[in-house]
Design a protein around this nucleic acid. Structure first.
Lengths: 197, 197
DNA sequence: CCTAATACCATGCGACTGCATTGCAAACGC
DNA sequence: GCGTTTGCAATGCAGTCGCATGGTATTAGG
């Protein structure tokens, strides 16, 4: 048999190809042949690793979530002696489409989001991701409160939700240029100013 | 020649069929044949009113914007002696996917939004719509300020933007059930409480 | 009334699509 | 070392796509 390969890694590489296709020609343009071309393999290879196109897209969605989480962790890990506010702000910069990977992830996310309105399997994954991120935001704010970094009388749950959905609302407009990164970050900082002392 | 028809109205009816297809089977499923079936006409009829599929979608996008604006106006017009806060809250209820038309418009909007990341023509229309709505929000808040309805020291521009993008961020999660209408409206009201006296 | 313009339908075409099948070379396991 | 399994390529197939074409029925306009 040929050289044994890491199946998971191959699938991740194909998922990256899916992202490239979505980012350059849109979700509609995702086809087995297009993905294969983008990855530099034959269509048969794609079929070898995914039983169907749907499975490929579902895996790609999961891989995107993993990629976001990994970028989040590495962005936070590079901070030296960060305050809770620093951590939150670094996380926000990862989620907003300010650099190229963030932009690609935002585009892919919106594409799956649109598809999720008629494909419950996508909706489940996305909903779970939202809940995790929202819970993480609440956790960070709560830690900041216990560290005495917050203003008095701040409702952690409500402020975390308000912050989180504000960020979600900024992603789209920033993608199509209806809002510049500077404007978006300024709004975020204003919100943080109201929470932190 | 056959009975003369209102071309604009026919196009609007076809655009509604496009919405139905997007809402039930997704943006990818939009095809000339599918739209024709949904509208109860032949594919030739669709071709008769739109030179290409792309033109049809572009018209549909414009029609969606018009529909949202019309729902906004009629929602506000039914208010009796409204305060500025009443007007803003009514507008927000129109934009959030709380009832069926709002839900359909949100789904269609997200679909075009996703497509806009690779189709600049869509992005232009959407960006223009965002700017109009944001400007309207600013205008309403400014009027409220002059009427003395706002707290002292409120930055109208920043608060309008924060409110607007919060709403945008609520639409998606509400669509896939990551956030209930009640939770979303509670967040909106919290934000309004901070602005209005 | 009659001609011409109009609304619309039916069909055909080439280019795709996802998926199934077949084939084959490479290297692991005995 | 050799048979078998594995990675992957090539191709076939039925279906769908956007779009172009040719036709027909209907009625507006002179």
């Amino acid at each position: 048999m040929p050289k044994q390969v890491d199946h998971e890694e191959r699938r991740r590489a194909l998922a990256e190809a899916v992202f490239t296709v979505i980012g350059s020609r849109g979700f509609e343009a995702v086809s087995l042949r297009e993905v294969a071309d983008m990855a530099g393999v034959s269509m048969g290879a794609v079929q070898h690793y995914f039983p169907s196109k749907n499975d490929m897209l579902l895996f790609a969605l999961g891989h995107m979530r993993a990629r976001v989480m990994q970028r989040l962790q590495s962005a936070i890990a590079t901070l030296a002696e960060p305050t809770h506010r620093d951590v939150i702000r670094a996380g926000i910069r990862v989620m907003l489409p300010v650099d190229e990977p963030g932009r690609q992830e935002a585009i892919v996310n919106i594409a799956f989001f649109s598809a999720a309105t008629v494909t419950p399997a996508y909706a489940t994954v996305l909903r779970d991701g939202y809940e995790r991120l929202l819970a993480a935001t609440v956790g960070l704010l709560e830690a900041a409160r216990q560290a005495g970094e917050l203003r008095r009388g701040v409702d952690v749950d409500a402020e975390a939700a308000g912050l989180f959905f504000l960020i979600q609302g900024l992603i789209g407009p920033m993608l199509i240029g209806a809002c510049t990164p500077d404007e978006g970050l300024a709004l975020v900082d204003r919100h943080l100013d109201r929470i932190f002392r």
